[in-house]
Amino acid sequence: MIRVKGLTKRYGHITVLDDVSFGVPDGEAVALWGPNGAGKTTIVRCILGFLGYEGEIEVNGVDARRRPKAVRQMVGHVPQELDFYDDLTIAETLELSRRLRAVPGSRVGEMLELVDLGAHRTKKVRELSGGMKQKLGIALALLADPPVLLLDEPTSSLDVASREHMIEVLEALETEGRSIILTTHDLDEVGMLVSRVLAMEDGKVIQECAPSELAERLGLRSWLHLIVGQDQQEAAVELLAAHGFRAHTNSAGILVEVSAQRKGKALHTLQESGFEIVDLEVWR
């Protein structure tokens, strides 16, 4: 259970989190979704006690400001920047973490197996690829089998195969009654892993909904690639611009920026004015 209430973070005059409130019950995974700079990672760091903040954060009823150690005891964290000790090997890194968390030594081997790093256990962190570091990060986060997981872009560095494996791992975790916060900018990942999405922009939560509703609720923009008659291209672009669309020609046709709910409107505008649309594609 994570409860965030009125969370605000300012650096001087710059407000990076503005009165954010949400909750994550046990057994639920919630995504913080948004572009870079929206404040997702800042929330994670506030929960971990890396940053001072205004507002309240509680993890399983424990105040994060007053009892940061107790909170961190309950939290597994996959950081966005995978900064581990370069000179330590994978096994040494896990061993250090194990000792700091007072976890039995057998867990190290289990985690290595889980993230498929057993063969690389004596490699130093500095020799690892981004994907391997991310696996190490996940292994570290799961080492103590914590009730709360903060996964900060946990799959961004993985290749396609590892990523699917990791998503399976993470999906399995959710069912064990944990509270999970996942930050991502990838909508597909959101769809697979979480039941609820908090969309963030400029330090605020701008939407809260199921993953499937997200695109529409946010008015996500995409591009329509329209093929019209060669000689009609210029006129079509002018018409669209006059109706408030951003549009331009490219080699094969016209690109029109549309919001999720207005794809048809662009087509309708053109067809009303007599343009023949030969073909169309939606580009994200």
Binding site: M1, V62, R67, M74, A144, G177
Partner: peptide, 14 residues
């Protein structure tokens, strides 16, 4: 909350 690994946060000393 029920902690899956039985982590007892109250045992953690600040």
């Amino acid at each position: 909350a029920t902690a899956p690994a039985g982590i007892d946060s109250s045992a953690v000393s600040e």
